[in-house]
Design a protein around this nucleic acid. Structure first.
Lengths: 222, 222
DNA sequence: TAGATTGTTAATCGATTAACAATC
DNA sequence: TAGATTGTTAATCGATTAACAATC
């Protein structure tokens, strides 16, 4: 199962999108697809699709294309979503609850084992069958439930301290929604979702689109 | 104000992170910083920092470095967060409410003008001073309130139809949390936040970290 | 077989890093 | 002035695209 050499980050980040499109093709009842057809749907080059997939082995067949169902399964395996991942959510606010309520995660092997908060008014509540617990019992819970992943949906002020506790309790990965970078050992994975940064990128693009429009206006006038 | 040539996407995506670090430096009372010091903090090369910033002009001074406050202000200007952006949220579920509750957005010029939902039990409720409205009045509201940005926190099944309505009503940008790609005209900006894809990337990295650990174990045994 | 389409090598393009002259 | 550090050019590295031989 060990992949030969390091796969580039750019390739990995495209895999979930391939997976999504293949799922849609399956829903449409499409059994096979060529890199060219997929390229047209996804608006990426066919060359890139073939290159990306060939990082993991030859999933296609000359003259035929790719079998949708087979490729879908293979990408799931590559991404590791054919296995079960036990997950907890730290911070039972709106964002934490939004994640808890997203049923598709469970379909892809992410089992939400528990939620944690410091707010005593939330502790004991149950969200989609998941109990909100006191953060005091965090470490024991991680060990007892073989928790691999923690979603961190708490304010940035508390994030570093909680991250340290998670690492010491043996967590494998942190899905970090706090607006700060986390310092963790090399063997702990951190995937950041910085919503405010995403919104700033949006803002930049809106403004430069606006600038462009104005520039074109001016050119017309001249 | 028009920037000379197209700035690369990679550069833009790093700007909000620079902005965050500069904000932290200001909080620490640090007045100036060299690309080298910043490089150590942010774990990127000093060369990259200087290259990135020079896309927008010379903000530094030889022998001195960069003035933190000045650079902070300039990046804000580049990102367009020195101006006001009117924003609405479509979908008043947990995710929509999480965004509405995030006060920092308003600090950066993103004014949440309204929320919309189809659920009659939510309509009329007020979240952080923002009323949840019926989606029937969407178009008129956008025009009346000069709304530029719509955050789309609804299921993917409804997303394309709502996106069309937003575009027709003259929206400038969609912050898309629905798990689907949107087809919009070239002059409408779409910034995707696909949480399930983020979680899959995390899964991949957890698994390949695991594989690596096992490979090393095996090597030791041999 | 002929046609289609992959897998893969080579060419191009872009982004990152290194180096250093300019200059505060 | 001497030292520090930028702005910027050149070198390197990596990612994307093009091309085509292999093969179903």
């Amino acid at each position: 199962m060990t992949e030969e050499r390091q796969i580039s980050k750019a390739v990995i980040s495209r895999l979930p999108r391939y997976y999504r499109y293949l799922g849609e093709l399956m829903e449409e009842g499409i059994e096979r697809i060529s890199s060219n057809e997929l390229s047209a749907r996804m608006k990426v080059t066919a060359s890139q699709i073939r290159q990306d997939l060939n990082n993991f082995g030859g999933f296609g067949q000359q003259g035929y294309g790719y079998n949708v169902k087979y490729l879908y399964t293979e990408i799931a395996r590559i991404l590791g979503i054919d296995r079960q991942h036990n997950l907890i959510i730290i911070g039972a606010g709106n964002l934490g609850q939004a994640i808890a309520n997203y049923t598709n995660f469970e379909k892809r092997g992410f089992m939400i084992k528990g939620m944690f908060d410091i707010n005593p008014r939330l502790i004991g509540l149950v969200v989609r069958g998941v109990e909100i617990r006191s953060i005091d019992n965090l470490e024991q819970f991680i060990v007892d439930n073989e928790v691999q992943i923690a979603a961190l949906t708490i304010p940035k002020s508390k994030a570093p301290e909680i991250a340290d506790r998670l690492v010491r309790a043996g967590i494998k990965a942190i899905w970090n929604f706090a607006h700060t970078d986390l310092n963790v050992p090399d063997d702990v994975v951190v995937e950041n979702v910085h919503l405010s940064e995403s919104l700033m990128r949006l803002s930049y693009r809106v403004c430069s689109m606006q600038d462009e429009r104005e520039r074109k206006e001016r050119e017309k006038t001249v």
